[in-house]
Simulated assay, not measured.
Amino acid sequence: MSNGQENVQVYEPVPTSRYLADHPRGSYYTGDYKLGLNFYSFSHNLNSWMNGSTDGATPIDTMQVIRFAKDAGFDAVDVTSYYIPGYDNASMPTKSDREIFEYAANIRKLCEELGIAVSGTGVKNDFADPSQERRELDVKRVKYWIDVAAEMGAPVMRVFNGAVPQDIEAHGWEKIARERIIPALQQCAEYGASKGVVVGMQNHGDMVCTADQVIRILQWADHPNLGLINDTGFFRNFRDRTGLDYAWYDDIEAVLPYTVNFQVKRKPAGANTDALIDLDELFTRIRYSSYRGCIPLETLWVNGDANHPKDLNEPPFGQVADFLNQIRAASERTKTKSS
Rank of each mutant, 00 (worst) to 15 (best):
N7T: 10
V8K: 14
V10E: 14
A21V: 09
G26H: 14
D32E: 13
D32W: 14
Y33P: 04
L35D: 05
S41V: 03
H44W: 15
W49A: 15
S53F: 03
S53W: 12
T54E: 07
G56Y: 11
A57R: 11
M63N: 04
A76K: 07
S81Q: 12
Y82E: 04
Y87H: 06
N89Q: 11
P93D: 00
E102Q: 07
A104D: 03
N106K: 13
R108E: 00
L110I: 01
L110N: 03
C111H: 03
G115W: 10
A117N: 10
V118E: 05
D126S: 06
D126N: 09
Q132H: 08
Q132I: 03
R134Y: 13
Y144S: 02
A149L: 05
V156M: 09
R158M: 07
A163Y: 14
P165F: 10
A170T: 15
R178C: 02
E179I: 01
L185M: 03
K195Q: 06
V199C: 03
V199Y: 11
M207I: 09
V214S: 11
V214A: 05
I215A: 08
W220V: 09
L228N: 15
F235L: 00
A247T: 14
A247H: 15
W248Q: 11
D250T: 07
V255N: 08
V255P: 01
Y258V: 06
V260C: 09
Q263G: 07
K265C: 00
A271D: 12
L276S: 12
D278E: 02
L279G: 04
Y291R: 06
W301P: 00
V302F: 14
G304T: 11
A306T: 13
K310Y: 09
G318T: 14
V320I: 13
D322P: 00
R328H: 09
